[in-house]
Every structure is written in C-alpha cells, then in structure tokens.
Amino acid sequence: MRDFEYEAPQSLNGAIQLLNQERVKPLAGGTDLIDHIRIGRVDTDLVVDIKKIPELNVLEVNPNGMRLGAAVPCRRIIQTSEVKELYPAIHDVCSIIGGIQIQSRASVGGNLCTSGAAADSTPALIALGAVCIINGPDGEREVPVEEFCTGPGANVLKQGELLVELRFPPADPNSSSHYRRFIPRYEMDIAVVGVGTALTLDESHSVIKAARVGLGAVAPKPFLASKVSEFLIDQPVNEETFTEAGNIARTLVAPIDDHRGTVEFRTHVTGVLVQRVLAETAQRIQQS
C-alpha cells in the first residue's frame, strides 16, 4: 500500500484543522477507504481517523428524534433496540451491508460519504427524512440527506468539512419504515435496486397521512421519489395503492445497463420492490 501519515484527533476542531488541506482523507470504518488506497483509487498523504471524536460516536434516541454519529458502526446500531423499534429501515440496512465483519467496522455515515449510487443506507436515510450535520472551517451547516450526494462518488462536502451526525425527526406512533434491495446472491452483494420507505398512517391504520420513498441504484445518485411520495398521501392502505405507487416509481428511474441488471430489469424490479416495501411498512404499523 502507498505510504501515508496517520492522525487520530480527539476533538472535532482538531479533525477539521487536519482535514483542511489537500490530499487528506477521513477514516471511519475503513471498509471502502483502505481498499481504495490499496488499489490506488484514492491517493492520499494523510489519513485522519475520526473514530475517537465524541460527537461522531453519538447514538441517542429521544423525544426529539434520533442522533446518529457519522462514525457509529452498523453492528452497534443493530444492537440498539430503539433503532429497530422506531427507525426499522436503519436496522434493516445495517443488517444487510456486507457480512458481520464489515458491519463491525462500517458506519452509516461512511456509507453516505462514499456516495455510491447503490449505497444501501442512503435510500433509507432519504425515506426517514434525515438531515446531515456538517462541520468545517466555516462552521456548522445542515443539508437534507437527499441533497447530500451530487453524483456517483460525489457529495456536497467541501475541503475541510466533515459529516458529524445524522439527525432524524421524531418517530410518530403510527409510522414505520423499511429498506429492501434486490441482489443476485443471498448476501454480501451490491444492490441492483434498493428501496427505502417511511409511512405514517391515520389512527385507524387505513389511510396514508405521510409518505417518503427513497430509491437507490437506479440513477446516478440515490433520490427522493417525490411523485410517489405525493401520490401516496390520503390514499387507502391496500394493494392497489402500492401497485400504483410502484408504477409511478418506474417512470422516475434512469438506471444503467450492465451485467448485473439491464435497464428493463431494473425498471421492472423498481416497481415490484416499491410495492412490496410499502406493503411491509404498512404491515409493521398495523402489527405494532
């Protein structure tokens, strides 16, 4: 592997100072970064380990919502029962990213910052309306997660800026969420289509009051399927509604054509998954 220096600052300010220069990379779980350095895809003179910074290790669920530090590994998220109960799409994602070894190290924040088009966590974060808290040389700013990625492997972070945490709105008692992907294998694969949904139903659990659908792997970046979300509001909770939502979703995608899935296949699967993931989300609310 190419030569580089390593620092592990204990404070956010210390990290930002180190990151505010050319050819430097932040290290969370390293499951992408270390491989990318080894194969020469990333050329860096300094690796800044951000796992010792307290703000990036926060995992807190309270009446104001959830705070998820950018360096919290998937395994810790899976083991936190409040996440499974109140933000189940995040639990779903963390359970299927890589194998157990990857889950021990990889973080949701890192998955977002790698900004892959097929990243599993991003559609779930979009569905749940997460907000990115970013800190940098010019201070703190907030970016809605659906505006964070700007293209394959690209995002809004400027030199010296660091994703500190993801903030989630409070979970309504009549709400739930789900993430599912299609992959050719049983485990350990990259999404061919990934769908995250969050629904809020009325008291009787028969009408949709709020909906957000995030789609991954079917465009240059994961995105909020606004047309699907708008259609779902005030619709009855039934198979026809979910099928129609899937049909609308098919009109919004712009997937690539490759050996893992053709455009036709990815477009078709988008509709099927949107339908199934919405149905599962509604069922989770009705069974709670």
Binding site: Y6, A8, L27, I34, K51, Q101, I102, S104, R105
Partner: peptide
C-alpha cells in the same frame, strides 16, 4: 473484523 481492512495503528 477482516484484519486486511484494519490499519494496525488503529
């Protein structure tokens, strides 16, 4: 963890 994806300094 996969020790090939952990830096020893970490």
């Amino acid at each position: 963890v996969t020790s090939c994806l952990v830096l020893a300094v970490e």
